[in-house]
Every structure is written in C-alpha cells, then in structure tokens.
Nucleic acid binder design. Sequence first.
DNA 1: TACTCATTTCGTCTTTTAACGAAATGTATA
DNA 2: TATACATTTCGTTAAAAGACGAAATGAGTA
Lengths: 123, 123
Amino acid sequence: MNELINIMKALAEPVRLRAWYALREGELCVCQLITVLGLAPSTVSKHLSILHQAGLVQSRQAGKWVYYRLPRTHEKGYVDNIQRELFNVLDEDVALNEFNKKVMQVRKGNMEELCRTITRKRR
Amino acid sequence: MNELINIMKALAEPVRLRAWYALREGELCVCQLITVLGLAPSTVSKHLSILHQAGLVQSRQAGKWVYYRLPRTHEKGYVDNIQRELFNVLDEDVALNEFNKKVMQVRKGNMEELCRTITRKRR
DNA sequence: TACTCATTTCGTCTTTTAACGAAATGTATA
DNA sequence: TATACATTTCGTTAAAAGACGAAATGAGTA
C-alpha cells in the first residue's frame, strides 16, 4: 500500500503532475522543466526527486545536463495502467493543453540559451 | 486538472485510502469506520468529508446514523476506471487484507453496541 | 419539551510540505 | 589546473494537513 501511496502522493501535486505530463512526449532537460514550470531550480529539482523516488520518472546525465524521462514501462505493471488512464484524462484538460504549448515551445528552443537565462535570473 | 488533483489528494493518504477501501463491499456507518480506523470521531468525520468532496463517496442519514458508501457509478467515467485499477492493486495488498478482516468483523457486529463503546471512550 | 446520542464543526497544536536562496557537487572546458 | 556552469543539497520560512477534545448540531425518544 505504501508504494501506491507514494505514487499517488507524487502525482497529487499540480507542479509534479505537470512535470510528469510534460515528459509524455519525450525526455526533457532539467533547465527545460525549470522554464516551463516557472519555479526555482532547487524547487524543481526536489519535485523531480520525489517523482523519481516514486519510480515515475528516470534520469540520465549527459555532460552538464540531466535529462528526465518516463520509463518505457514500469516495474509494477499496474503503474502502466494508471498512467494510461491518467494521460487519457489529462489529454482532455484545457489548462494542461495550454501548458503543453509552452512545453512544445521549449522543446524547439535552444537549450544552452535557456540555461543562461536561468543563471542570469539567479543574480 | 484540479478535479483530478482533488481525487488523487483524497486517496493519497493512508487513512482515507483505507476508509475508501473499506466501503468496497458495501456501506458502513460512521461509527463502524471510527472503529476500524481507530481514530477520533472528529478526525474520521473530516477524512470522510474530504472523500465526499472529491466525489469518491456518498452518504445517507438513517435516524441517528450516517452511512457512507461508494457511488454505484461516478459522474465522470474515468473515476470508475481508476477505481477499478486501484482496487485490483489493493486487493493484493497484505496490510489491507489484514485491515479488511477487521472490517468484516465490524460488519457482523452490533452497531448500537459499537457506538456505545465509542461514546464511553470519549469521557 | 427536555434528553440522549451519533456525527460534525471549531479551535488548537504538531507535523509535513513546498518554496526560496546560498552553498556544495560534479562535469566540461579554457 | 582553474574556471564556468547545470544541477542538487541544505537550511530556513510560510502554508497546508492531520490529529485531538470541546462544543454545536440535529434526529430520535422519554
């Protein structure tokens, strides 16, 4: 039950649900997630670690950057089912569709530039 | 999205998940829920109101007693799907099976007596 | 009407959660 | 080796959530 509770807790938070949903169409660098979520790097990092701990996302390091993605398939099969069901619901959500536009923008943009924007903000 | 978040938040809490699961096999009086959950009446009442607000349970009053139950079917169909999926997982859960034994005990027991036990505790 | 009693509401306390900035980490590059 | 810089960790603060008991509510009964 605790495992399920962790998964539910992880997704029962708007920021994390958005972050998770943003990965639906492929991996994203942390700086891209920081940008679309509009929160401080440390805050986003924490959220991602909670999603990671729940087994809902995976990460890989590539040079300076860390990319997060959805697992192709989850260890426990039921998580796949829940994910499918939730995505079906969220795909119809107006607010999330709006958010998704931002994600698509960021996917197209230049990542080096994005990171520099974030670094500049921090001073 | 907010609706979904409310549903997830409601179920992402062990006490509420147990309460909700306890109703799987039919309605229960509040005093029965208080007993199986082992918490103060006011605490249980609050949890039930959160489940109710999320649309996950319904209630009816019968004399002094208030009974809570699962809706036969949810307004939004996707909730039925999620519920089915979660129940499938929870049915396999060892801790919940243990809990379910208590629920079955309480279902068989005398309700008047149960309530009196609770009232006695309060003094 | 007055009383009993199951449940809910209210006020309070404690714990948990989410946000941030500063500092630490660790990789790539000058 | 020193530096730059993306990300994470740590410490702090503010807000939310969960627990309880006391008091309020509201339905049945004497």
